[in-house]
């Protein structure tokens, strides 16, 4: 366990009570359900104002972005993949989520504005680890969304048709 992984675990343990979480494994292993659950909660907040207003189109855009996140992360160094997986696992756990966000209500049950506020509070946190989590999620998710040609219409940009 490197320092960063220790910090994530220590942070969650410290804030939510070591007795409750002592037996919980802060797994570095990928858990597809946890990842999907967290991305489903965070993407609509980060992309507020960028997603199509039509609910069906918005859902399709979210699915494309989620798939792009998954496709992309496989190219990251293993240590970064493990950190991301740990973050997803922590956020998907109600108690560690409480430690990281201050909310016991499950992320998806919070309003989009509250979810965005939570992310922004990480950016302004005095804890470097939360600032890093904000920036890494932000880059990963914006990269995934804006990498898709279907999402360029509002930029008034079209991919060059060279061939």
């Amino acid at each position: 366990m490197n320092r960063r992984q220790f910090l994530f675990s220590g942070l969650a343990l410290g804030a939510s009570g070591s007795l409750l979480l002592a037996g919980w494994q802060f797994s570095l292993n990928p858990d597809e359900d946890n990842r999907d659950w967290v991305l489903s909660a965070i993407l609509p907040a980060l992309l507020y104002g960028a997603l199509p207003e039509d609910a069906t189109l918005a859902q399709a855009a979210l699915q494309r972005s989620k798939a792009a996140v998954i496709d992309f992360t496989a190219f990251l160094p293993l240590s970064q993949q493990q950190q991301l997986d740990q973050l997803f696992n922590l956020l998907a756990n109600r108690l560690s989520q409480l430690a990281l966000t201050g909310h016991i209500t499950a992320l998806p049950a919070l309003s989009v504005t509250t979810r965005l506020g939570l992310l922004n509070s990480w950016r302004d946190s005095y804890l470097l680890i939360l600032q890093q989590a904000y920036h890494s999620l932000r880059e990963l998710l914006y990269g995934a969304f804006y990498g898709q040609p279907q999402h360029w219409q509002q930029l008034n940009y079209t991919a060059p048709e060279f061939r």
Partner: peptide, 10 residues
């Protein structure tokens, strides 16, 4: 992030 970021992207 959110609407602020979307407005800049536009």
């Amino acid at each position: 992030s959110g609407a602020q970021h979307a407005a800049l992207m536009q």
